[in-house]
Nucleic acid binder design. Structure first.
Lengths: 143, 143
DNA sequence: ATTTAGATGCGACATTATTGCAAAAAATAA
DNA sequence: TTATTTTTTGCAATAATGTCGCATCTAAAT
C-alpha cells in the first residue's frame, strides 16, 4: 500500500521521505480536501510546520495535489480527482464544523459577460452552508 | 458630494470621521472591489493600518460594504451593488495585475448534487485569468 | 465651550506562510 | 558496505495579514 505512495512520489521527481509519504497517506485516507492545520493534527509522526508547508508546495508544484480553495485564511489542498488545476470542480464548506467536500457532479454553467479582452483561466466555486451534522435537525424541531 | 458619504455613514450609526469618509470615497471612486492593501495605497490622508481594518469591519457590520472574496491572502471588499451578502455575484480577478471586477451579469446555474442534508447558504464564484491590459496582445503575436 | 461617546494611533500580539542555514536523511557512487 | 552527493528537515528568524488594549484625540451633542 505504501508502495503506491513511493511510486507516486518518485514518478514526480520527489524523494519518498517519511514526511511526504505520511502527508500523501493522509490525503488518500481523508478522501477530501485538507488544510495545513488539519494535516498537522492528523500526523502520526513529528513533522515541522515548515516541512508541511514545503511538502504541500512540492506536491503542488509536481501536480500531485492542487489548491482547491481558500477557506477563511486556510489554503485547502486536495488530490486532483476529476478536476484539473485549471478547471476545478466546485467545493462545499460547512460553516459549522469546517468540513469540506468536493462537488464533482455539481456542474457550473455560465454564459458570456466576461467582457472583451478578458481571458478566463480558472474557475473557483465555493458553496458555503451546513453539513447534515451541523444542520438543525428538522425531526427535532418540536423538542 | 461628500454629504452623500456623511449621510450614508450616519444612517448606519457610524460617525462621519475623516478616515471613514475617505475610505467610503475610495470605494465609490474605484467602482470595483478593494482590498486593505489597495486602500492603503490610495489614501489621500494618513490613516493607520489598524484603523483601516477597523473601518472595513465597521462598514461590513453596518452593511455598507461586504467581503466579495478572498484573493490569495487578501480579503476583498465592495459596495453591495446588485448582490446580497448571502448570494454574491461572481467576480473576476486578474493574475497579472491583481485587478478585480464584478460579473453581475454573469449567472451561475447549477443543479443538484449537494447531497442529502446539506444546506447551501452562500455561493462564492471567482474567475481567475487575465484582463485586457495583462493579456498577451494577439495583434502583436508576430513580433 | 464643555462634555462624552466613540474613533484613532501606536505598539504588542496572533496566525499563516516563507526563507536561511546547519544537521540529518535519502539516493548514488565507489 | 562505506563514502559521497543531493535533497530534505528542523529550527529560528522574518514577512504579511489581521486583531486587541490602551491612552489620546475627535465628532457631535449639550
Amino acid at each position: 500500500m505504501e508502495e503506491r505512495f513511493f511510486g507516486l512520489l518518485r514518478d514526480n521527481g520527489l524523494k519518498a521521505t517519511k514526511g511526504r509519504v505520511e502527508v500523501l497517506r493522509l490525503f488518500f485516507k481523508a478522501g477530501r480536501p485538507l488544510a495545513q492545520k488539519q494535516i498537522m493534527e492528523m500526523l502520526r509522526l513529528k513533522l515541522d510546520r515548515a516541512s508541511v508547508y514545503r511538502i504541500l508546495n512540492a506536491f503542488t508544484g509536481a501536480g500531485i495535489i492542487h489548491m482547491a480553495f481558500v477557506d477563511g485564511r486556510h489554503r485547502v489542498y486536495e488530490l486532483p480527482g476529476k478536476c484539473s488545476g485549471r478547471n476545478c470542480h466546485p467545493h462545499f464548506s460547512c460553516r459549522g464544523c469546517g468540513m469540506t467536500a468536493c462537488l464533482e457532479d455539481f456542474k457550473v454553467y455560465y454564459k458570456g459577460a466576461l467582457g472583451k479582452g478578458f481571458v478566463a483561466e480558472r474557475q473557483k466555486v465555493l458553496i458555503e452552508g451546513l453539513c447534515p451534522n451541523c444542520r438543525p435537525d428538522r425531526d427535532r424541531r418540536h423538542e
